[in-house]
């Protein structure tokens, strides 16, 4: 019984701490779901209380990854002196009107460890993403809804080697 008491105390303490940390991270109502982005002034969501993920409601861009790759191929200038290898994830919001904002970049090396990429790379990646046109917000219950989307850039020596998903 004593062991159960200790375990239950640890569990409750952990979970309460978790709640306190979560609630301290940003203003209401975040984070209701893991990886919610902090609210900012770049774009207004139709419903801050329920933002979908792109795969829940088929949010997409006209031309798909083919269009995205072509746009980056045309506009991205390789940073030749850079020797970093790994992945850059760009997560952002597409609101119910098809407007984008809340761009958030994270980098990691090939072993999935955090890595801060050269700002000459990341600023270009964000700027080109802001220029992508033709976002089609997904539908839920016959209504256009807000959703999060992300792009992953496979980086090698300042070049974009691949873009997923």
């Amino acid at each position: 019984m004593k062991r159960y008491a200790i375990v239950s105390f640890v569990v409750v303490a952990f979970l309460l701490l978790n709640c306190i940390v979560c609630s301290a991270q940003s203003k209401v109502p975040h984070p209701r779901t893991v990886n919610d982005l902090p609210i900012d002034s770049t774009v207004r969501a139709k419903d801050e209380n329920f933002i979908f993920q792109y795969y829940n409601i088929d949010t997409h861009v006209t031309g798909g990854i083919h269009y995205i790759r072509k746009t980056y191929h045309k506009n991205y200038i390789p940073v030749l002196e850079n020797t970093q290898q790994g992945f850059i994830t760009l997560r952002f919001l597409i609101n119910a009107n098809g407007e984008t904002g809340r761009f958030y970049v994270t980098g990691m090396d090939r072993h999935y460890r955090p890595l801060t990429f050269d700002a000459h790379i990341t600023t270009q990646i964000i700027a080109i993403a802001k220029g992508l046109q033709g976002w089609q917000p997904g539908m839920y219950m016959n209504e256009k809804r807000d959703s999060y989307y992300y792009l992953v850039f496979k980086m090698e020596n300042g070049y974009i080697k691949d873009i997923v998903p």
């Binding site: 893991v34 992945f87 994830t89 994270t106 990691m108 999935y112 955090p114 992300y150």
Partner: peptide, 11 residues
Amino acid sequence: PYLKNGDFITW
């Protein structure tokens, strides 16, 4: 969910 949301460092 971390995988599906592109948070591979947490995944």
